[in-house]
Amino acid sequence: MSTEVVVVPTGTANTASVLAAFRRLGANPRLAGPSDDLRRIDRLVLPGVGAFAPAMEQIDAHAWRDALVTRIDEGRPTLAICLGMHLLCAKSEENPETDGLGVVPATVTRFPVGVSVPQLGWNQVEPGPDCRFLEPGWAYFANSYRLDSVPDGWKGARTSHGGSFFSAIERDGVLGCQFHPELSGTWGACLLDRWLDNTGRKA
């Protein structure tokens, strides 16, 4: 039996790319439906393209907030991509009135004036020494907002674009990526594979 991966439809995400990436790894990906209990799913992906507020509205419209917060607090295998990583945070400057899931007590901020926004293209990811899933390499980014601090308990990788920011965070089975692992070539595929295995290189 191949590993089942359930992708949360957050609205306008590039779900086709995410599904295709997991299929290439031999997993069995599908979109979440109304009968799914997101807390108990083995491997869950929170993808994201688009804006913070509409994506949170989608999550609340399906009453998924509590299940997501609980599973992430429990450290169950959850992959949050790009905007999905922002949704883990408490707030985002993109839509200041909207509350995120808040499992990462931080505010997502816009890149400073003077750097090219959106950041579109390949940039280098440099993980901290204690990361389990993340390895150094080149990743594909498409973002205008980013996380510039990481709270206690989370391990992070850094990338430079108008100064250093956190391009990925991890804690237990939870991995948040500002970049798109599904679009980051072989390096990205290997990262997805390590997350699927939930072993990590130092497990």
């Binding site: 790319s17 295709a20 990436a21 299929r23 594909y140 798109h180 679009l183 980051s184 595929a189």
Partner: peptide
């Protein structure tokens, strides 16, 4: 687009 997506792990 759909066919190319299946093989492509870089942006399209």
């Amino acid at each position: 687009t759909s066919k190319v997506r299946q093989v492509l792990s870089i942006p399209l």
